[in-house]
């Protein structure tokens, strides 16, 4: 009984880490494809639940867990899409859609590509770019926050933009 409890708490701790590590990325990916906040949240939840149920069968390496999560999420998105499609066919509303599979793979590629670009940047550059992109700070505000000159802020932004221009060439 006691042993069971401890093994649960280890598993819990592991999952807590997995959430911190993967939740944002998976959620953002799902939202990019689905464009529905509630549905994205729901499918990512179900994805983690599936990992919880199959945790003992998944190799505990970084990579296999990540690929389990993304494959599960992709399948859930496809399932959801199929469900909607059946309903559409039923009410005879729409022509069949082109393969959603290629579309969602492409989106995931893009999400991964962007993440990779961030890792090639200096941490400082990433931080500054995100302050501008996500928080909407002006260059002046960033310079005050970071205690650097506006010129330096601009240098970091310009570095980040150059990296994105190069790394996302096929998407721009």
């Amino acid at each position: 009984m006691n042993k069971k409890t401890t093994s649960y708490s280890i598993k819990e701790a592991k999952f807590s880490n997995l959430f911190d590590k993967h939740y944002n990325k998976l959620y953002n990916y799902a939202f990019k494809v689905l464009k529905e906040t509630d549905l994205s949240e729901e499918l990512v939840q179900e994805t983690f639940i599936k990992l919880w149920e199959n945790f003992e069968n998944v190799k505990e390496s970084e990579r296999s867990i990540e690929s389990f999560l993304i494959t599960t999420l992709k399948n859930k998105i496809i399932d959801d899409f199929r469900k909607k499609q059946t309903r559409q066919k039923h009410t005879n509303l729409y022509a069949l859609h082109i393969t959603i599979e290629t579309e969602i793979d492409k989106q995931w590629e893009l999400v991964e590509r962007i993440e990779n670009i961030y890792t090639t940047l200096e941490q400082k550059t990433t931080d500054i770019f995100k302050l501008s992109r996500d928080k909407g700070f002006t260059y002046k505000e960033i310079s005050q926050k970071k205690g650097i000159s506006i010129k330096t802020v601009e240098l970091h932004i310009s570095k980040a933009l150059a990296a994105f221009k190069k790394g996302l060439k096929e998407y721009l």
């Binding site: 959430f19 939740y23 944002n24 959620y27 953002n28 990512v44 992109r133």
Partner: peptide, 15 residues
């Protein structure tokens, strides 16, 4: 680039 780098900030704690 601006469009593609958009992210939502969901509450991980709540999830």
């Amino acid at each position: 680039i601006h469009k593609h780098t958009a992210t939502k900030d969901p509450s991980v704690q709540q999830a």
